[in-house]
């Protein structure tokens, strides 16, 4: 248990740093940004209480916000994503007592269910984020283009990381 907690803390710090120092500066085609740090929310075990997921999500979003000067933006999106994590997970996986103590991975969910799960999470996150940030500035169509491109980018990067980590 303790080992898990430490590894999750390390994952948190590394993801926030990678997001702030690297991913925030990579903008493909002037619209696609990779929100790699939501990988932390995606990876949190399913069985821990929703209150904890919400708290961790909020702290995660706020940390990224403070370091990239967008106060409240990522915190709000992460909080909403945290509350939608369980529904997104169980949309592709049968309710099953054996599934309770796991963190979502390719191995435990199966490749296609896992892909659908990551894609849903990325899409929810990008939609909320771009709607909140740009709604009073640009057209709805542009928001959809930006959100769609970012969803795809985020999805591909997370999938790539997972393929590297869980090679067998």
């Amino acid at each position: 248990m303790n080992k898990d907690v430490i590894s999750y803390i390390c994952l948190f710090v590394i993801l926030v740093l990678v997001q702030v120092l690297l991913m925030n500066h990579i903008v493909l085609f002037n619209s696609a940004v990779c929100f790699i740090f939501i990988y932390f929310l995606i990876k949190l075990p399913i069985n821990i209480s929703v209150n904890w997921v919400l708290t961790l999500g909020f702290i995660l979003g706020l940390s990224v916000d403070i370091l990239s000067d967008t106060p409240g933006l990522n915190a709000l999106s992460c909080t909403i994503l945290a509350v939608l994590k369980r529904p997104a997970f169980f949309a592709y996986v049968q309710h099953d007592d054996q599934m309770r103590n796991i963190s979502p991975t390719m191995g435990t969910m199966g490749f296609f269910s896992y892909c659908k799960y990551i894609f849903t999470m990325s899409a929810i996150y990008c939609m909320i984020l771009y709607f909140v940030e740009f709604i009073s500035y640009i057209d709805i169509a542009d928001i959809f283009i930006k959100a769609g491109a970012s969803t795809l980018f985020t999805f591909l990067v997370i999938l790539a990381i997972d393929s590297l980590v869980y090679r067998n």
Partner: peptide, 29 residues
């Protein structure tokens, strides 16, 4: 818990778009 975090986030969002906010919540901390 959800409402509490959403309210804090919205408060920060609205406040930051209107005025200067504290040093601790900016990248200059």
């Amino acid at each position: 818990v959800f409402t509490f975090y959403v309210l804090i986030s919205c408060f920060l969002l609205i406040k930051s778009s209107k005025e200067h906010y504290s040093l601790y919540l900016s990248s200059a901390n």
